[in-house]
Design a protein around this nucleic acid. Structure first.
Lengths: 192, 192, 192, 192
DNA sequence: GATGAATGAGAATTCATTCAT
DNA sequence: TATGAATGAATTCTCATTCAT
């Protein structure tokens, strides 16, 4: 009952409601009902509906990014850091099926203002990827001839697309089993 | 039906209206106005609003996919085919800035049902990518140890993310200049 | 069926709904129902709810003011003009009991923005009163020592208050029977 | 109850909040905040929001009416009594700019039920005016041919309208300077 | 007496779609 | 075919009031 329980209740309810009903069918009243609070209570903790959604993303991505950061800090090479990053990306989303649906499918349907806020949060994650690339450039593991931005686009694009595929296939296979192969594909390419 | 001039007028109007106003501010009446037809006329050519948007995607992606297919058919190696694929992906979207905005940003805001239909169309493009991978496996250019699905996710994810980045940066740089480097990154990876 | 019948239908319905239910209980849907149109139709003719109310006032006061103007134009002396003004003020409101309720009681409950618009319309009526005073000053009927603004406040305040009293007493007596006495009171005062 | 300090705090806070924010933006929570009490505390002293507003009017008008009564009691003629009445009406409102705004503009926006209660309070003031007229009829200063109700409507309507004009012109001129001229206008009329 | 977190009813407006002409 | 006026369902947010502490 401590530490603003209602705030967390509402956040968790929002994730579930969006995952179950889809972004466009997620009325405030539905979220309130699932959180077991009155509609008006929502507005004691959030400015408006958009604020709920941004907060969901911020809270959840915050944890996600922190997890990724901590994991790669433990590793000594860019190669290992990248491996860990892929592993964390897959494992964290695997463990929160609702969150995966929300981030990969539903929240992308939001209108521009909200998307803008979401992109800000996403930026922090891209920064983490950039830091791994930067590290690899320093250690010499990655060739300096490459544009780091393109490398990052490849890494994030690949991870994002593979998770989306997994979500759209109803999360029916084990994402984490792909870690090693994806790591090899990204670092070595697929041509002999 | 699809040969009628009004049908094409409406499709073209829809692309422009969505690119200029964003998905959520693209009312049927706006599309009708830009197409210079009455609101009701729209419904003589399309079942409903969703049908317009799917048709936009189908028509435009059809041309896009045909272009890609024709281009890779001319090449003899998987390596060259992939190079051409990347080049066509970038060049075709570069030449249709409106279309790029619509496919990369706006249409992704549509609700799940529409997204489902869009994914069907997208499937044809993924099939083209798959055919290149298939070809590479047959010629031995690509190692059989890799899961082709993962390779495809990497290729598509990378292309898609790089175009989205370019659109979000207001298309301020030349996408096609990245073709060669992206091709190297995908085929050889970025590790020494 | 000619000359924007829906517009007038809605205006008339609005007057009745406000008079019967009071300003605060006059929902758009109630007005639409009484006008026998769909809720959405209202918005083809009016920008928003406030616009309906302003239009009601403008339309009705327009007629009211025109009536007053035409009546005083026929008279040759300030004395007669004032008499006619009082007569028209009373008779026009007597003939439209709903309108009287709306202008004397309900519309005064509106919020500042709307009140502002209403005051603009009211200003035209005050101008008519001012023109009578002006005329009287020119003919010498009214002593130049008086501040015309104060005279106008006395005339309008008296008429307004007497109509409000009549409305609040449920319009149970004949307002027009007071014309002559009110005219005497205003012009000669009530002291011997 | 009415002697409790919190009661008076809330009344004073209400006047200020309404004058500063307008009737429609005067939430109970705002009044509570300005009165430095909790929202719930309000309901220990007042039945509901309407009760606050009526009490504001009752308390303030009580003082106002008492002032007027005392002033006219000192005078010996109806003429002097009326003069004093006008003077007190103007001076008391001049000295309480907030109160003037609240009574002339904001409280008139309240819904009919509240207006009804306000009118009851106002009735006491009209009684005071009536007593002056009565006195004048007895002394013979006022002609018995006039309907006293109409005289009262003229006096109150004129005073009320002139104060409203002054408030709407942002209280930029001296109301009390008009006392003498208004008195002349009311008693003698403005026709030669 | 005092608090303030929680409640939940209530209403304006948009826009895809229809159908009489 | 083509029109466009009319339809009406659907949802966020505010704020007076309560009541457990």
């Amino acid at each position: 009952m401590k530490d603003k329980p209602k705030y967390k209740q509402i956040i968790e309810a929002a994730v579930e409601v969006i995952a179950e009903n889809g972004y466009h069918a997620s009325q405030v009243s539905k979220i309130a009902k699932k959180a077991k609070v009155a509609d008006g209570t929502i507005y004691l903790y959030f400015k408006n509906k958009e604020d709920i959604l941004i907060s969901v993303f911020r809270e959840k991505m915050g944890t996600f990014i922190d997890g990724a950061k901590r994991a790669i800090d433990d590793e000594q090479t860019a190669n290992d850091k990248l491996f860990k990053l892929i592993e964390m990306h897959y494992s964290q989303l695997s463990e929160s099926p609702y969150l995966a649906i929300v981030t990969q499918l539903e929240l992308r349907q939001s209108k521009s203002e909200l998307r803008h806020e979401i992109n800000k949060v996403l930026k922090s994650y891209l920064d983490v990827i950039d830091s791994v690339i930067e590290f690899g450039l320093e250690t010499g593991e990655i060739d300096k001839k490459f544009n780091p931005q393109l490398i990052r686009q490849m890494i994030f694009g690949t991870l994002d697309e593979s998770v989306t595929t997994w979500v759209m296939k109803s999360q029916r296979y084990q994402l984490v089993e792909q870690v090693e192969e994806m790591h090899t594909l990204l670092t070595k390419g697929f041509f002999k």
